[in-house]
Every structure is written in structure tokens, then in C-alpha cells.
Amino acid sequence: MMLTEFLTLLSNPDTLSLTELARQAGYTPDEVAAGLEQLARMGYIERQEIGQACGVCSGGRHCDTCSVAGTAEPFPSWHLTEKGNQYLSKRKRAER
């Protein structure tokens, strides 16, 4: 169960790099990236950009300095959503 496996790895308290997640789960980074995008489309996880807060910036002079990344690429990352959390706890309950 590849997608469920990714979800479970995401629920661990350790932060992983995509390559580490791929190694732990036994897939290539491309396969993991495809799987994570699928999970995001299904609403179980979401992609967020670290160091980038322009989305919440109301404009003005702070916006040009508002990310570590400045105007360059921020760092993308994936998190579990509420739906993802609920799905996993339902699974855990079912397994018990």
C-alpha cells in the first residue's frame, strides 16, 4: 500500500527529505513525488512553502523582504491535513 505508507511516514514526528522518504519506503524520489501529489489531490496532505509568507502579507514594504528566499524559490514541503490525520486514526482503530 504505497500511498498509505507515505501517509504513515508523514505522520511520524521526524522531518524527512523526499529522498529519505523514498529510501525508507523503497521507491524512487520521482515515484514518491508522484504519490505525494496524488495524496494532495485527494486532500490527505497539502503542500506548503517554507520561508514564504507573501501569501499572508498585506502588501507594503515588508513584502519585498518577506521570505528567506526573497524573490527566489521558497522551499516546498508536504504536511498531513486534518482529513489525512482522521484517515490514519481510523485505520489505526480498525487495525486494533
Binding site: 514526528p13 524527512l16 517554507i50
Partner: peptide, 18 residues
């Protein structure tokens, strides 16, 4: 706390212009 997975870019030679 809960964790997340970070997409780390490949290393590359920076472009000076950028």
C-alpha cells in the same frame, strides 16, 4: 507536533546573474 516532508532541490552551480 507533526512532521513534514521537504523537497530538497538538487545541488547546482549558482547563476551569478540571478
Amino acid at each position: 507536533r507533526s512532521a513534514f516532508v521537504m523537497e530538497l532541490p538538487l545541488y547546482h552551480l549558482p547563476t551569478w546573474r540571478n
